[in-house]
């Protein structure tokens, strides 16, 4: 392991808070506003880290420990994600499972901290979170398994290394379906429109935002930072797959990766500006659709194999 191996993870840790900024600027442009600075989240994080905190009297140590532990989980998961030509910090056969389960642990803690406040609104958000993620997880696994089937590897690093332009020529249609599924999972897991609206102001309709309502100060900084890292992590799965079609290597590929991440943020901004959110009852249908699409991609990959 050299310093070079840390590039992918470090770029994520440093640049992740940029993504929400880009998304918000895109939405502002659509709305005809000038919008908040692109670096707004960095300012927010620094401000929050300098503040004191207010805790609900109902809460216990679970509520206080969850943000730190959640941030550790998502950072741990990030260590296994390559960034195009920049290799992952660590990689082993089956790290796909570990990454998904670290996100699962983070969710477990977030949901518990929401229930720890005793608020019915936070309970509502927690209930929705576990419902939707129970369906998003199989979709993500099958989508990634489709890629594993083609590339013959069980780790994220090996997965993307095994996908070449030649593989895209053979399996293009299956990969396009996988990209769609990954994008849906990306939107669901990061609580974006059409599933959840990060800008909503009504607690009744929130999912992720309502679960963190009672956080303040450094805890809130951890929560917001962890959310942006998760956005980066799942975005990187999509971008790595898309980049593998281009077949570029070397530092050019890494630069391309960063540019593509920003492009992904713009796409999310466009989606959020042009779509309304789905009614909560329709979200499970969309997710079941995502699972079905993923199964279709898996079957397609089997049919297309030369």
């Amino acid at each position: 392991m050299t310093a070079f191996h840390a590039v992918a993870m470090l770029s994520g840790l440093v640049l992740a808070p940029l993504l929400p900024g880009v998304i918000n600027r895109t939405k502002a442009a659509f709305a005809g506003r000038s919008g908040q600075p692109v670096l707004q989240l960095y300012h927010d994080l620094i401000k929050l880290l300098r503040k004191g905190a207010v805790y609900s009297r109902t809460t216990t140590w679970v509520f206080r420990a969850a943000p730190a532990a959640g941030l550790a989980c998502v950072s741990g998961a990030l260590a296994f994600m390559p960034a195009a030509s920049a290799p992952a910090l660590a990689s082993f056969g089956g790290d796909i499972v570990l990454v998904v389960y670290f996100l699962g642990l983070m969710r477990f803690l977030t949901v518990l901290s929401a229930l720890d406040t005793g608020s019915s609104f936070e309970g509502m958000g927690a209930s929705r979170e576990v419902q939707f993620s129970a369906l998003a997880e199989p979709a993500l696994f099958v989508a990634v398994a489709t890629l594993a089937r083609v590339s013959g590897s069980e780790s994220f690093a090996g997965l993307f290394a095994g996908l070449t332009p030649a593989a895209w020529m053979a399996y293009g249609p299956a990969f396009m379906v996988v990209l769609t599924v990954l994008f849906l999972v990306f939107l669901v897991e990061n609580a974006r429109i059409p599933v959840d609206d990060p800008n909503t102001h009504l607690e009744l309709t929130m999912i992720h935002e309502v679960m963190i309502l009672d956080y303040s100060g450094p805890d809130l900084a951890f929560v917001l930072y962890a959310a942006s890292l998760k956005l980066w992590l799942l975005g990187a799965v999509i971008v790595n797959l898309a980049m593998s079609a281009a077949g570029v290597t070397g530092s050019l590929a890494f630069v391309g990766f960063l540019a593509a991440m920003m492009l992904l943020a713009i796409v999310v901004g466009v989606v959020e500006s042009t779509m309304a959110r789905l009614s909560l009852l329709k979200v499970p249908r969309m997710l079941v659709g995502a699972v079905a699409l993923a199964l279709l991609a898996f079957a397609l990959a089997g049919r297309l194999s030369p």
Partner: peptide, 23 residues
Amino acid sequence: AAALYLLRNALLSRRRVDSAVTW
């Protein structure tokens, strides 16, 4: 996680930490 928790404690140690009802 333990290190981040200690960091949080260190950050909060000299500041005002209030308690209130749940929002």
